[in-house]
Design a protein around this nucleic acid. Structure first.
Lengths: 354, 354
DNA sequence: TTGAAAGCGGTACCAC
DNA sequence: GTGGTACCGCTTTCAA
C-alpha cells in the first residue's frame, strides 16, 4: 500500500453533477436512488457522470435531512450474561458515533434458541431496518430470513453462523482456527506424547465439527504427536457432560489433556475434581464466565479460547451500518482471530470487561 | 448492565435550548463552545439548561456546516512495512465513516526515532487539529508536545508510550501483560524445569523493563518453575544481537527456552541455527514480519506475541476523533490484549492483513 | 453582548 | 419526468 499524495481538492457533491449535466438536484437524487419517475436515459447519464466525477455521498448531510433514523434491532440471549453483555457493549460502542441517525434496540430472549422466532417476527412487524441475531436454531430462522430478505431487511449473524439463512454476513471466531489453536496449545503443553480427549456439544453442528477438524489438524502437524483417544458429545447438557466426563476419565487413566470446545466446561472440571485429577491434566476450555475465573487462576485450566464478543459486536454493527448507509457489502463471513486467555492476561481481559 | 427501555422521544437540539431560555441559537452556540463575546451569566444559564435537557450535539449537522474538516496527521516509520502498514490500515478503516469531515494525512519517517521532530514541527506549522505518532525518542518529543498542548492540539501515542509527553492518551499492548504471556507460554512449553533466556533492547526503556517484570512474574507463578538464567540487551542492533545470542547459547548448553521481547528476533534465530539448536529450544518472539513466517511454520518459533497494529490504529483514531468531535476524554492509557500467534492461527492472521 | 439569517449537502415535496 | 425550493441542526457572519 503506497502513500498517496495528500487529499485532493473539494469533494464532488450532488450539485456538481447537476450542474455538469444541466439538470436539477432533484433529478440527480432520483437517479442515484433508483426512485421512480425518471427517464431511463437521464438516469444513466447521471450515474455515469457521478462515477466519472467520483461522487461519494456525504452521509452526514444525508441523515441530517431524513429525520427517520436507521433502526437496528439486536436479539441476544440473557443466558450467560458476561458473554452477551460484552457483545452488547461492542454494538453500543460501535453505534455511538452515529447517534441519533442510528438507533439500536436491544431485545433479549432467555436462552439461546428460545423465543427467537417471536422476537424476529415482532421486529419485522415493527419495521426495523436491520437485525443482529445470534441464531440458536438456524432451521427455524430460515423462513423468517427469507421474509426479511423480501422486504430488504439485512440480517447479521453473530457468534454462530446460519449459512442456510438469507443473511448479509456473519461475524464469528473461525471455528477451524479455534480448534486448531486449542490443539496446538494442548500438544505443546504436554511433556511428550500423551492421550487427549475432545469434548463437544453435537458433532452434527457445523461449528463443532469444524472445531474438531481444526483440532485434529493441529495434533497431526505437531512433531511430538498427541493421541486423540476420546471424542465426547455432551449435548450442552450439564448432567450428561458430567457423567460422560467421568466415564472418559475412568476409561483413560493416562489422559494428559482435555479440550472442551463448548462453553459447557464446568461439568468436566467437576468430574476432574471428583477423580482428583485437577491440575494433573492440561485443560483448554472455551470462552470466559465468572465460574471459570478461579480455575484459570489456580492453573486447573491452562488456557481458554475466547471468542471476543466485544469485537464481534463492534464488527457486526459496523458491517450492518455500512450496508444500510451506503450499500457497501461486507464479505460473506467475517472471521475473528480468537484470543488465548491464560492466567497472565486474565486480569487485563476482566478489567476491560468490567 | 440492565436493559434500558428503548429510545426516548426526539433528541434535544440547540434550538430547544434557545427557545427555553428566550435567547438566540447563536448565543447558545457561543456558550457551548466557550467562544468569546458572551456574558458569563448567560453562558452559565445556557450550560445549565443544556445539561438539564440532556443536550447531545448532532455531529452530522455540526460537520456539515463547518466545511473545515478536522485534519489529523499520522507520523509513522516506514521501517517494518508490514507492521506499520497494518497500523495505517487500522487508522484508515476507522476514519472512513467520518469522511470527508475528517481527513487523515500520513507522513512517514524512515525509521523509528529518525526525523520525527521535523515531521512534528511541520505538522504543527501546517495547523493540523490532531496528531498520531509512534514516539521513537520521547525525550526529544517532550518540548514539542508542550507546544502542541499550548495550541490545544491533542496527541495520541501508538505502540510505545511517552508518559512524560503531554498527550491525550496512548494506545499500546500492555507491556507487562505481553511479558507475562510470553513467560507463561514458555514455562508451559517446557517439559519440566528448565533454563530460560530473555532478550531485550535496552532495559532502561520503560516498556522493556515492564516486559521483563511481567515475564518474571509469570515464571514465579508457575508451579514447575523455569529458571531465568540470562537477560541479554541487544540494543536493537543486529550484529550485537547475533553475537550476544551466540555467547548466551554457549554459556548455557542446557537452555530450554528463549523469549525475544523486541522485534529484533532474527539474529537470535540465526544464532540458534548456527549452533544447531533450532527446534530444540522453545522460542517465543515479538510481532510478525515476513521473515518470521517460515520459522513459525517450521515450528522453530513456538509463538509470537503480536501487538495488533490494526487494532491500535483503529483505537487511536477513534479516541482522537471522539475528543476532537465532542471533547470526550479517553482513559490515560488504552491497553490492548496482545495476540498469541502460532502455526495454527498464522494463516488467518496473514489473510486478514493481506 | 446579542439576534437574525445564510448556508453546509442531501432529501422530499410541490408545481409545472 | 423534471425543476425549484424548503428544510434537517448547527456554525458563522454581519448587523444591531
Amino acid at each position: 500500500m503506497r502513500a498517496r499524495p495528500n487529499p485532493p481538492a473539494r469533494p464532488v457533491g450532488i450539485k456538481d453533477i447537476a450542474r455538469a449535466l444541466g439538470v436539477s438536484t432533484g433529478t440527480v437524487d432520483r437517479a442515484l436512488h433508483d426512485k421512480p419517475g425518471i427517464n431511463a436515459g437521464t438516469r444513466q447519464r447521471v450515474l455515469d457522470k457521478a462515477a466519472a466525477l467520483g461522487y461519494r455521498p456525504n452521509l452526514a448531510a444525508r441523515h441530517l435531512k431524513s429525520r427517520t433514523s436507521i433502526r437496528v434491532a439486536v436479539h441476544l440471549p440473557e443466558e450467560i450474561a458476561l458473554f452477551w453483555d460484552s457483545l452488547r457493549d461492542g454494538i453500543r460502542e460501535a453505534a455511538a458515533p452515529f447517534a441519533p441517525t442510528l438507533s439500536v434496540e436491544f431485545r433479549n430472549n432467555p436462552r439461546l434458541g428460545e423465543g427467537e422466532v417471536e422476537l424476529f417476527e415482532k421486529a419485522l412487524a415493527s419495521g426495523v431496518n436491520g437485525l443482529i441475531v445470534a441464531p440458536g436454531d438456524p432451521a427455524a430462522l430460515e423462513p423468517l430470513s427469507r421474509r426479511a430478505a423480501a422486504t430488504r431487511v439485512p440480517i447479521v449473524c453473530v457468534v454462530t453462523d446460519a449459512p442456510t439463512c438469507e443473511r448479509l454476513t456473519s461475524v464469528s471466531a473461525d471455528p477451524f482456527t479455534v480448534g486448531a489453536v486449542a490443539g496446538e496449545l494442548l500438544s505443546r503443553f504436554l511433556p511428550g506424547r500423551g492421550e487427549i480427549a475432545f469434548f463437544t456439544g453435537w458433532l452434527g453442528t457445523e461449528d463443532h465439527a469444524e472445531k474438531l477438524r481444526g483440532f485434529e489438524a493441529s495434533l497431526e502437524a505437531e512433531a511430538r504427536r498427541a493421541d486423540l483417544v476420546s471424542v465426547v458429545e455432551a449435548h450442552d447438557d450439564e448432567q450428561a457432560g458430567y457423567r460422560r466426563a467421568l466415564t472418559a476419565l475412568d476409561a483413560h487413566p493416562e489422559l494428559k489433556g482435555i479440550y472442551v470446545s463448548t462453553v459447557n466446561s464446568l461439568p468436566v472440571l467437576r468430574a476432574l475434581e471428583r477423580r482428583g485429577r485437577l491440575g494433573k491434566i492440561s485443560v483448554v476450555t472455551t470462552d470466559l464466565f465468572p465460574a471459570l475465573v478461579p480455575h484459570i487462576r489456580a492453573g486447573h485450566v491452562a488456557a481458554t479460547i475466547y471468542q471476543r464478543p466485544v469485537s464481534q459486536g463492534r464488527q457486526a454493527l459496523a458491517a450492518l451500518y455500512r450496508f444500510l448507509a451506503d450499500g457497501t457489502r461486507p464479505p460473506k463471513r467475517i472471521k475473528l482471530i480468537p484470543h488465548v486467555v491464560m492466567r497472565s492476561n486474565l486480569d487485563q481481559l476482566l478489567g476491560r470487561m468490567g
